[in-house]
Write a protein that binds this DNA or RNA. Structure first.
Length: 510
RNA sequence: GGGCCUGUAGCUCAGCUAGGUAGAGCACCUGGCUUUUAACCAGGUGGCCAGGGGUUCGAAUCCCCUCAGGCCCGCCA
């Protein structure tokens, strides 16, 4: 049974109404790893619905968290915003409402493309609406209890009089106001900037610290399931303290926890280099077809870490997806090593499973065609020389074409990249030229078919007595300026007879 | 110091919660009428299942220990 179904069945034993929560802090580019939280939870959400449960998927953006520091990708001028809520910091590009929105929006768009449509909440709005009002009172009334729990379980040493609420200072706009006196509903606070004031807790802005806010959310939203990374799951971490605070302070039975592993990046050294920057989710969505990206997450148990290979491995991943698809539609037998084929395939679909199998174009081939063609119409033209395209296949092809173009431009290894030369400008030795001349004569007479072209090349090589290596090199050199290239027969076929012949002609004339 | 995950063919992994002496894909090699070249097909090479100990008639599969790799916590979230 697929892991999503295993979890769903466990949840069903608890009841048939569920709220599944996800949350992400938009303090920087939201990366692929964060996608796992959302995708894992959404898969379980689907599995619950398949069992007739009443389920709700929520996404809370931690927009009210303070900016911790000036991250490497930020301008130094951001120094002055450290400590302020992400929602009140200006957008780095100037096009979004605020800093949080700048990072959040592309992620939400990515989720949408992946078919993930949770109810979205923004934390700063929740606070502004007074959503947490009662929880804040409960937390403050139980400040000592919470302090003890945190000290005991997380091994901290919070001082006497510590209060689980940071006031948003009216003077400096930072979440650094410390409550010094509390007598509901009035508080006296002091900020690090030196500001002091007495205010009504119900009218002042501020935020509970994460370890308290998390259990508060569970009780307010009625959360019954939450997946989180192992950072939260460490002993003494926020899950350990949260579940106790939920029970003892908010009188709420904590949700079923589910720990997932992180994603590692493979190949592209620069991506996870000194800066520690990962690939943004919005970026991955541009280079991997949506269903294939989902597939990556559905295929592995969430407890396993995933090696994400944005280089050659991406081609294998797409091929593997296509293979699952063929098995799903009964075109091929499942082979050893495939797991839960039907379920994995279903869960990989962003917007439902098609009634009919989409026509598949091998991804590696598309990688070649996409580099020959100048635009999508040409891609269709080249591919149609061999296959008929149906309407919905064209949609898939278009998506894949766009993704592979993006991939080729930004992530593909050089070995697979080439560019058809506008004009051949290099030098050719005499032997090669003679060989090409003979080849041209032969090509002129044959039907323009990949295998026939392939044969013609080999025949010419043999007749002329040149080595195969030299022969092929000559061909690649005049077309793409490299010693190696895509399989010659198919490649020349895709380029078209006219182009190939005139290119050779051009070289011979020189 | 504490904890999690992983360690099976060159690479990515399946098999491990029904214990019976290893699988897949890719790569590689060999064929595919005369043809090494990055969409094809058919075969094939390749692993003492990280190491050690234990349980068992029998373990990659269960238990214990060790080693290695990755990551998290010990600031904040």
């Amino acid at each position: 049974m697929h892991w999503a179904d295993v979890v769903a069945e466990k949840l069903m034993q608890r009841g048939d109404e569920h709220v599944l929560a996800t949350a992400i802090t938009p303090s920087g580019p939201i990366h692929v790893g964060n996608l796992r939280e959302v995708m894992t939870t959404e898969a379980i959400y689907r599995a619950l619905k398949d069992r007739g449960a009443k389920a709700k998927l929520i996404f809370i953006a931690d927009t009210f968290d303070p900016l911790r520091k000036v991250y490497p990708f930020l301008d130094k001028s951001y120094e002055k915003y450290v400590g302020m809520p992400l929602s009140s910091i200006p957008c780095p590009c100037g096009e979004h409402e605020n800093y949080a929105e700048h990072f959040l929006q592309p992620f939400i768009e990515a989720m949408d493309e992946l078919g993930i449509k949770p109810e979205i909440y923004k934390d700063h709005e929740l606070y502004a609406q007074g959503f947490y009002k009662n929880a804040i009172k409960t937390a403050l009334d139980n400040a000592d209890k919470i302090r003890n729990i945190l000290n005991e379980i997380s091994g901290r040493n919070l001082p006497e009089g510590w209060m689980p609420f940071n006031v948003l200072c009216e003077n400096c706009g930072r979440l650094t106001g410390e409550i010094k006196e509390y007598e509901y509903p009035s508080i006296k606070y002091e900020c690090k900037c030196g500001w002091k004031n007495s205010v009504n807790i119900n009218e002042c802005m501020g935020k509970m610290p994460w370890r308290v806010e998390w259990p508060a959310r569970w009780s307010l939203f009625g959360v019954t399931f939450e997946a989180f990374g192992k950072d939260h799951a460490s002993p003494g971490g926020s899950w350990d303290t949260g579940k106790v605070i939920a029970k003892e302070v908010f009188n709420y039975e904590p949700p079923m926890p589910f720990v997932y592993e992180f994603i590692h990046l493979k190949g592209r050294g620069a991506m996870h280099g000194s800066t520690g920057l990962a690939i943004a989710a919005s970026e991955v969505v541009k280079m991997v077809p949506a269903e294939v990206l989902r597939f990556l997450f559905m295929k592995y148990e969430p407890s396993r870490h995933i090696e994400f290979d944005a280089s050659f491995g991406l081609l294998d991943l797409v091929d593997e997806y296509d293979e699952y698809e063929r098995v799903y539609f009964g075109m091929q037998e499942a082979r050893a090593g495939m797991k839960d084929v039907r379920r994995v395939y279903e869960l990989s679909q962003p917007y439902g499973t098609k009634a009919k199998m989409p026509l598949q174009i091998p991804y590696r081939h598309l990688a070649v065609v996409a580099q020959i063609a100048k635009n999508f119409d040409e891609v269709i033209e080249i591919i149609q020389r061999r296959t008929e395209l149906q309407k919905f296949d064209e949609e898939r092809l278009r998506e894949r074409y766009e993704k592979i173009k993006y991939w080729l431009k930004n992530y593909a290894p050089d070995a697979i990249k080439f560019e058809v030369l506008e004009k051949f400008e290099g030098e050719m030795d005499k032997r090669s030229i003679e060989f090409l001349e003979r080849l041209k004569n032969k090509l002129e007479t044959i039907e323009w078919d990949a295998e026939k072209i392939h044969s013609a090349i080999h025949e010419t090589i043999k007749e002329y007595g040149i080595s195969a290596k030299e022969g092929f090199e000559a061909i690649y050199k005049i077309i793409i300026g490299k010693k190696r290239g895509p399989r010659a027969g198919y490649f020349l076929q895709s380029l078209g007879k006219e182009f190939v012949l005139s290119r050779i002609h051009e070289v011979i004339q020189k």
